[in-house]
Computed example of a mutant assay.
Amino acid sequence: MQAKAEQDEIARTGLYYALYSLGATEYLTALLELLESDSHVVVIRTIQHLVDIMNAANKDPILPALHDLSQRELPVSIKEVLNEYLD
C-alpha cells in the first residue's frame, strides 16, 4: 500500500526495488517507468537497482529499456552511469 501512496520518486525507487526483490515481480514495470523521471538522481538510482536485480528471467525488458535510455539526450551524470553498465 505504501508504494502506491508514496509521492516521492526517490523513495519509490527503493520501495519498488525492495518489493521486487521480495518477489513482487509486478514492480519491475514500475521501476522501468521511473527511467522517464525528470530527476537525474531518480534515474541513476533506478538504473543501479535494475542492474542489481537483472537476471536471466528479467533481462529482456531491462536491457532494451537501458539501451533506449542511452539513445536519449541525457545529463552527463546519467550517461556515465549507463556507460558503466552497458559497456
Rank of each mutant, 00 (worst) to 15 (best):
V43I: 15
D60S: 13
L63I: 14
Q71N: 13
A56Q: 14
Q7W: 01
A65M: 07
N55R: 13
A24N: 09
Y16R: 00
L63N: 09
S21A: 10
S39L: 14
A18R: 12
A57I: 03
S37W: 06
R72G: 01
L34H: 03
A11W: 04
A3M: 07
G23W: 07
L50A: 00
K4R: 10
D68W: 03
L28N: 01
R72C: 08
Y85G: 05
D87T: 09
K59R: 14
V76I: 12
E84H: 13
S70A: 15
A57H: 11
I44P: 00
S70M: 10
Q48Y: 04
Y16C: 01
E26Q: 08
A30H: 12
N58F: 06
A5P: 00
E9I: 02
N83Q: 14
A56C: 05
V76M: 13
Q7P: 01
L66K: 06
K4W: 05
L19S: 02
E26I: 03
A18F: 09
I47S: 00
L31R: 01
I47T: 01
H67Q: 15
S70L: 07
A30F: 07
Y27K: 03
P75R: 12
E73H: 11
V76H: 11
A11G: 04
T25W: 08
Q48N: 14
Q7M: 03
I62Q: 10
A65N: 06
K79T: 15
A11I: 13
N55C: 14
L32F: 03
N58L: 05
K59S: 15
N83Y: 09
E36P: 00
G23Y: 09
V41G: 00
H40F: 12
M54I: 14
N55W: 04
A65T: 04
K79M: 12
L28H: 05
Y85F: 15
L69Y: 07
L35A: 06
L22Y: 11
L32T: 02
N58T: 04
H49D: 08
Y16F: 15
P61L: 05
Y85M: 06
G14Y: 07
L74W: 06
L15M: 13
